[in-house]
Design a protein around this nucleic acid. Structure first.
Length: 508
DNA sequence: TGGAGTGCTGCTTGCTTAGG
DNA sequence: CCTAAGCAAGCAGCACTCCA
């Protein structure tokens, strides 16, 4: 079985300990982060939301150019909902995707009992939208920032009673930003959300979702859990809808929700939707090979997703620690400095996700598009950042050292993940011996490899057989790192998509 | 000054064999 | 029979020297 030869790296035990140790208690007041209509370098959260506003683009970008009749029509509930149709569709999609992600992160974390609290972070603010015509017809749409997640603030309580007040589960990582990103829509949409979610102890969706996650922590499969969640979601929408007056705009929102849920529910019957969410292409078939592939690869994928998230939180905590002594302005300068410092592809991706901020403004091509005023602002910031680096050079040097170590570790973990996938595919999915693989590999890729080569490829997938000091050959002779080009060539031999070997990126 | 030659080092890899 | 590790060959990169 997998467990006997699975490296410690991905064990549930080590994860839950680490998550607990870096857990931070719930903060008091709600913080909202602006992510559009600012300079690109101050766009906190610009990467987290899919869209900022849910309205139809034709209206959104023409608020001053619409005919009177159309403007007036947007006072009617059904038209308000139609205006936000796309936003609602994305919101429902994300609710399901984000629940699935949360389920993966909670899977087998039986050390914790989970609970929920109201959102304390909000990425994206939502100013009102005014539709106005030349003749003076004016309709104001009050917007509210609607969280896409049912459980933006998931609280974990260690069952051993060591932290009775609990802590925000995996706060600071990129999944946390995803769960706290919002879409700005007419207030009736958020109103409908509030009806569905409830406050946590009223047997509405939030409470039901937490209950499902607690089952997941005890071993319920995240895919099954997501299907259960969808059922609960649908049921809640139906119940709330029935209670509302026919003229209530929220009723129309709920009806639109219902249509979307019905649609997604169809998609969740097959495995393709879940494959896509964790970045796998297994194929649309539900045959024997696909079934087997899912059974073994999903577990690996869940593990690496959780593992990355824990690492991200650790990195986020380390950055926060350095920021503690700084003013708010200096804090944002520090983030920019890091984005610039770690600009190689792999580290940049991690940091961008983590800080919910795109570093594109540092690219030469972007700088050329700036007008004179913006260019000056950009330059000014660069000077200030340099001053910051001088002021805190001691703290910043130490932070950079630590981050480099973290990134190296992450890269290492990814290699171990790949070698695990290799072993799984050869043994569990294809049922080949190492020698058989050599034969197949030569036939399919033309590259001749030895049995030892295969053994070395798989070395990372199991724990060391003996204590390290007992080996006479160094590690680099026993292990071969699975490079991306290796992965591609081997994927074709196994007859699977090369994406299986790549780290699973979630809803990004 | 630059190119060829030399030896050192570290890394990868196939062959062989111990051990399950 | 299958897999992992020890051993050693082969190879690339590098510093260094020598010579035209």
């Amino acid at each position: 079985m997998i467990s006997t030869s699975y490296p410690k790296l991905f064990s549930e035990n080590s994860h839950s300990e680490e998550i607990k140790n870096s857990g931070i208690p719930l903060a008091g007041s709600r913080k909202a982060k602006k992510c559009i209509n600012t300079k690109p370098w101050t766009q906190t959260g610009s990467r987290a939301p899919v869209i900022n506003y849910g309205e139809d683009e034709n209206v959104l970008y023409n608020v001053n150019r619409l005919p009177d009749a159309e403007i007036r029509s947007y006072e009617k509930p059904e038209k308000i909902v139609k205006l936000n149709k796309e936003g609602i569709e994305i919101a429902v999609d994300r609710r399901v995707a984000l629940f699935f992600q949360q389920a993966i992160l909670c899977y087998k974390m039986s050390m914790f009992r989970f609970g929920a609290s109201a959102a304390v972070d909000q990425i994206g603010v939502s100013p009102k939208m005014t539709l106005k015509s030349e003749s003076g017809v004016k309709v104001v749409h009050k917007r509210e920032a609607a969280h896409s997640s049912t459980l933006p603030t998931l609280i974990a309580y260690p069952k051993d009673g060591s932290m009775p007040q609990g802590f925000v589960y995996l706060a600071g990582g990129s999944s946390y930003s995803q769960h706290n990103s919002t879409i700005g829509m007419h207030e009736c949409v958020n109103g409908a959300d509030e009806l569905i979610d409830g406050k946590g102890s009223d047997n509405k969706l939030r409470q039901k979702a937490v209950a499902i996650l607690n089952l997941v922590a005890d071993g319920l499969d995240p895919v099954k859990a997501t299907r259960q969640f969808l059922d609960a979601f649908k049921e809640q929408v139906r119940t709330e809808g029935k209670r509302l007056d026919i003229s209530d705009p929220r009723r129309h929102v709920l009806r639109e929700y219902f249509r979307n849920i019905h649609h997604i529910k169809g998609a969740t019957q097959s495995s393709e939707l879940f494959d896509r969410l964790i970045g796998l292409q297994i194929g649309n078939g539900e045959g024997e090979k696909e079934r087997k592939l899912r059974k073994v690869v999903y577990k690996r994928r869940f593990d690496i997703i959780r593992h990355q998230e824990v690492a991200e939180c650790r990195i986020a905590r380390r950055i926060e620690e350095t920021q503690k002594v700084m003013t708010a302005r200096e804090k944002s300068f520090l983030e920019e400095m890091l984005l610039k410092e770690f600009s190689e592809d792999n580290t940049r991706t991690i940091l961008e996700k983590l800080l919910s901020k795109s570093a594109a403004y540092n690219d030469a091509s972007y700088k050329q598009t700036l007008d004179a005023k913006d260019k000056r602002a950009y330059q000014q910031r660069q000077t200030r950042i340099q001053n910051l680096v001088q002021k805190y050079h001691h703290e910043i040097d130490s932070l950079k050292r630590d981050l480099r170590r973290e990134f190296r570790r992450l890269a290492q973990d990814e290699l171990i993940y790949r070698s695990g996938v290799f072993w799984t595919l050869r043994k569990e999915v294809c049922g080949w011996t190492q020698k058989e693989f050599c034969k197949q590999h030569e036939q399919k890729s033309g590259k001749s490899v030895s049995q030892s080569w295969v053994s070395r490829m798989e070395h990372g997938s199991h724990l060391a057989r003996r204590p390290e000091e007992e080996y006479r050959t160094p590690l680099n002779q026993r292990r071969r790192y699975v490079s991306l080009s290796d992965a591609r060539a081997c994927a074709s031999t196994f007859g699977v998509d090369a994406g299986l070997f790549l780290p699973g990126l979630f809803t990004s």
